[in-house]
Nucleic acid binder design. Structure first.
Length: 121
DNA sequence: CGGCTGACGACCT
DNA sequence: GAGGTCGCCAGCC
């Protein structure tokens, strides 16, 4: 069997109020000029060690999404994606007046979005 | 139902 | 700094 091909079958859909949907709802709250990390989103949901899953949730977003996925970066403000996608993310961040240089969000700690931390479940 | 895939991060050697 | 382990969601075939 050939692997799943979004070019042919379209993007995965995110349905209901599962983990991916909760991630999308949180990321939607990030205003222009702010950024967050995969780990922070998981922590804001009261769940440590799910950074990877947050990354998966971003990867599953349809192209038409209203979720500002480019405001989610890796720990320390690093951009970790395929080079082509990272370039697109850097451009979108630049549109937010966020500077990315050498795969790094500049002044990362100052731009990090303060999510209200939900208690660990 | 089972196997595969995919934008991470803390911790360890 | 470079590698490996482990945690654990959700869609598709």
């Amino acid at each position: 069997m050939p692997p799943y091909d979004p070019e042919r079958h379209g993007p995965k859909r995110i349905v209901g109020d599962g983990f991916h949907a909760q991630v999308g709802a949180l990321v939607r709250q990030i205003p222009p000029g702010a950024v967050t990390t995969y780990g922070d989103v998981g922590a804001a949901l009261g769940r440590a060690n799910v950074a990877r899953l947050v990354g998966y949730a971003m990867a599953a977003l349809p192209a038409s999404t209203d979720v500002p996925w480019w405001r989610v970066v890796a720990a320390g403000g690093r951009i970790t994606q395929r080079p082509a996608a990272a370039a697109r993310q850097a451009q979108l961040l630049a549109d937010d007046d966020v500077e990315v240089r050498d795969g790094r969000v500049q002044e990362f700690s100052r731009r990090r979005h303060p999510f209200p931390q939900t208690p660990n479940r």
